[in-house]
Design a protein around this nucleic acid. Structure first.
Lengths: 155, 155
DNA sequence: GTGCATGCAAACGCTTTGCAGTCTG
DNA sequence: CAGACTGCAAAGCGTTTGCATGCAC
């Protein structure tokens, strides 16, 4: 697992490549959003990102966050997730590996996992219904068994 | 697997019990919505239910469908699902058994499955993150391998 | 200077609710 | 007849977009 500074460098490079390749431009808003997003480790809603970015750039508007995160998704820096049906969450994208989520319903912590046994079993279940799997979403909800962790602040 | 008429009888009884137990009332709208919903086998959006109900009762309003389906959820006749993030889907609830979903992205068919191996594996993965599972959602997307089925109308 | 990016505000789609009139029990 | 239910219309809420201005290249 890389540390935050490494991730920030990687993401910055990825953004730069995407910008160069698509005739886009660097702006201080995009840099600020990227930094806030990566340092938080992702798993943020647009409004959370807005609040964090506005600490450094008070005049940033919501539409800028919105469009920038869409751009990050396009640049494969972020992924858009919808856990509740309420609002979207953006998470940092690490390479091309797929993963699923485990969420504590008390403290809101989000863990990521990947399990080959589950995936292969899921493929064979789908095959029994005559379906060839293209992708899936597996979200597990529960509560931390370690109450100290659960009651402590997230970051 | 019961046939549709059986399911309709069960649902009608469940609704009657719920209405009696909670000081609610029977109306022709609720009966019509229940019948349409059960006969379709669930997996309908509010607008689809509205369109079907309006064949029999042209003056029924959207809000009635909305409130009635919430009531059916409360009466444990239906469950609300959100697959896309776009709009809610309501499905018939059969007893207390949990199930997950396999969806064809071409024809929109929805299959339900339950797999003990996946569930137990998921519990142990969650435990390794210090989480005790309360519930989960597992949605598998893919395409029908039988193109004849996939291209034919849903019901 | 060109044209992408920003910020504001308005439009959107789905969901939810307030209210006056209607119907059930 | 009291109180729940309906239908309409308006309000919410997160998301998306149009437009004039601002800024990167």
């Amino acid at each position: 697992m890389s540390d935050t500074e490494d991730l920030l460098v990687c993401a910055t490079v990825a953004l730069d490549q995407y910008i160069k390749a698509n005739g886009k431009k660097h702006t201080k808003q995009r840099n600020a959003i990227l930094e806030v997003f990566v340092r938080a480790g992702g798993h943020l809603s647009l409004y959370e990102i807005l609040a964090l970015v506005q600490r450094a750039q008070p005049n940033v508007g919501f539409a800028t966050i919105y469009r920038t995160m869409k751009l990050f998704v396009d640049a494969k820096i972020a992924d858009e997730q919808r856990f509740g049906g309420d609002h979207a969450i953006y998470e940092l994208r690490h390479g091309s590996d797929h993963h699923d989520h485990i969420i504590c319903t008390r403290c809101g912590r989000i863990f990521e996992f990947h399990d080959d046994l589950i995936e292969s079993q899921q493929d064979s279940v789908a095959a029994s219904f005559g379906i060839e799997v293209s992708h899936h979403r597996h979200v597990v909800h529960g509560t931390c068994t370690d109450l100290d962790r659960c009651n402590s602040p997230k970051s």
